[in-house]
């Protein structure tokens, strides 16, 4: 028997199912909470911290926090939006993101949240790290310059593809995605049909030879800002 839970997000009452995370309940109600590492169908991860909300006054990640009856959630407050801007900027300066040359432009979730938050240039200094590209695989490219360490490929490969092609190696600012071989993706059992490739929110994991099938200008976030897909389908009541 599933009882319905009632909670409030920014003063609006919404219904949720027990066991749901705050972000899932918000999605279903048509309330967009910014996110990058969260992807429906994958185990909650909680690394990007973009979804940080206040639940009963305490900060927490909406993608990992379960709903509780009577919970009062604050989402679009000025200070939270400011924190989120900082986080997005940090992800930009930490890697090497050249949107103008990137084939993911327009379909990139990092670029899209930046636009949604009105970020044109980061106020933090660029780190210009040296990062590698692994083009060893005939059909797949890994560009570490653009990786935001969201772990979506890791979880998808492990839990949906049943392969464990990817996992994290290194610690701190040296942390990166590793592959299940000495060093090259070509030496793993990664395959062009892996769902993991569709999990990447940015242009770090790409299918070769597919770059410009959809012209710039007609891509997902060229048309509507990220989040509008949630805001338009949900039923706030």
């Amino acid at each position: 028997m599933s009882q319905t839970i009632t909670l409030k997000i920014d003063g609006v009452e919404i219904k949720a199912q027990p066991g749901q995370k705050v972000i899932e309940a918000a999605d279903a109600a048509g309330v967009y909470i910014p996110r990058l590492c969260h992807k429906p169908g994958l185990e909650p991860f909680g690394s990007c911290r973009l979804c940080t909300v206040l639940a009963n006054g305490r900060p927490c990640s909406a993608c990992t926090t379960p709903v509780v009856e009577g919970m009062v959630v604050e989402n679009e407050t000025e200070s939270l939006q400011n924190f989120r801007k900082q986080i997005i900027e940090m992800l930009f300066v930490e890697g090497n993101h050249f949107c103008m040359f990137c084939e993911k432009s327009g379909n990139c979730e990092l670029q899209a949240v930046a636009y949604r938050f009105g970020i044109t240039a980061p106020t933090f200094p660029y780190q210009w790290p040296h990062r590698e590209v692994d083009a060893s695989h005939p059909d797949i490219l890994i560009d570490h310059n653009r990786c935001i360490l969201c772990g979506r490929c890791v979880r998808t490969s492990r839990d949906l593809d049943g392969k464990h092609v990817f996992d994290f190696v290194g610690r701190g600012c040296e942390k990166k995605i590793g592959v299940n071989a000495d060093s090259r993706l070509a030496d793993t059992n990664a395959d062009i049909s892996d769902q993991a490739l569709d999990a990447c929110p940015v242009g770090a994991l790409l299918r070769k030879q597919t770059a410009y099938q959809t012209p710039i200008g007609q891509r997902l976030y060229d048309l509507e800002p990220i989040g509008s897909e949630i805001e338009s389908t949900g039923n706030t009541n």
Binding site: M90, L91, C173
Partner: peptide, 13 residues
């Protein structure tokens, strides 16, 4: 540990 953005990048900045 490098898991989350605020700490991984924030400390460096």
């Amino acid at each position: 540990c490098g898991y989350c953005t605020p700490c991984r990048v924030g400390n460096v900045l």
